[in-house]
């Protein structure tokens, strides 16, 4: 899979309400970019623009992928797993195909569920799964979409620390080589997963140095801890 780079520049507003101005964000091809910043600075708007969910949003500027249109190239995963409660897990994984009118490939869906460790839960409904399992299910659905660009909106923030670390490992493994934009509030998560880390402020973007090791980085590694501390310091300075 050849994943494109992304770019977003300009000014966004909802009605007369400005969201951000003079932004110039480049997201590297085939790597994980972590986007941090205070609440209300417009991180989610950035994701919505890349996802094409522009209802009510006005962008004066440009938003796109290096190889042309974003349409049909993007998969989205949010903090809420958004699993449909009336469908068994395997059908939740297949919902994209059903929504497009494609023939649902059940074998492929089961294979994806096996990859995220949910092979035994394919026929369970979301209410029968733990929070961590549901988020794995959401990851399986995202993988099933098989898109080169993956937008992650705080997907692990509602999980307990251990489950979160496991999900980070799993996501880094299965989403390797894709262009991933991860919005997060967690400096530790950014230090583990970011091949590039960007802090969004009302004044623009700030680049943060990242450890020069492959992801997912072990959270106890000195350079990761150092990066986390530096990131936190910078976030506090900007707040």
């Amino acid at each position: 899979m050849r994943a494109p780079a992304l770019h977003l520049s300009g000014t966004a507003r909802i009605g007369d309400q400005p969201i951000f101005a003079g932004l110039d964000l480049q997201v590297g091809a085939g790597q994980w970019t972590c986007l941090l910043g205070a609440s209300g600075v417009g991180k989610s708007t950035v994701l919505r623009l890349f996802a094409g969910l522009t209802e009510g949003l006005v962008l004066e500027g440009q938003c796109g992928a290096s190889d042309g249109s974003l349409a049909g190239q993007v998969a989205l995963m949010a903090q809420d797993d958004l699993l449909l409660p009336w469908l068994p897990l395997v059908d939740n994984v297949l919902i994209g195909a059903r929504l497009r009118g494609d023939r649902p490939d059940r074998a492929a869906a089961l294979d994806v569920l096996r990859r995220v460790g949910l092979a035994d839960h394919a026929d369970k409904h979301p209410s029968e799964l733990s929070g961590g399992q549901r988020q794995r299910g959401a990851l399986a659905r995202t993988l099933m979409e098989d898109r080169p660009i993956v937008l992650l909106d705080e997907p692990f923030s509602a999980l307990d620390a251990l489950t979160r670390a496991q999900m980070q490992d799993l996501a880094a493994e299965v989403l390797a080589d894709r262009t991933v934009l991860l919005v997060t509030h967690d400096p530790g998560e950014a230090a583990r997963l970011g091949q590039r880390i960007v802090i969004m402020t009302h004044g623009g973007l700030e680049e943060v140095a990242t450890p020069d090791t492959p992801i997912p980085r072990p959270m106890e590694a000195p350079d990761v801890l150092q990066a986390q501390a530096a990131l936190l310091t910078q976030l506090r300075r900007l707040a």
């Binding site: 919505r48 996802a51 094409g52 969910l53 349409a71 049909g72 993007v74 998969a75 989205l76 949010a78 958004l82 919902i95 994209g96 929504l99 497009r100 979409e145």
Partner: peptide, 8 residues
């Protein structure tokens, strides 16, 4: 929103 991103 998710459904629209999926191309529904």
């Amino acid at each position: 929103g998710l459904a629209r991103v999926m191309g529904a």
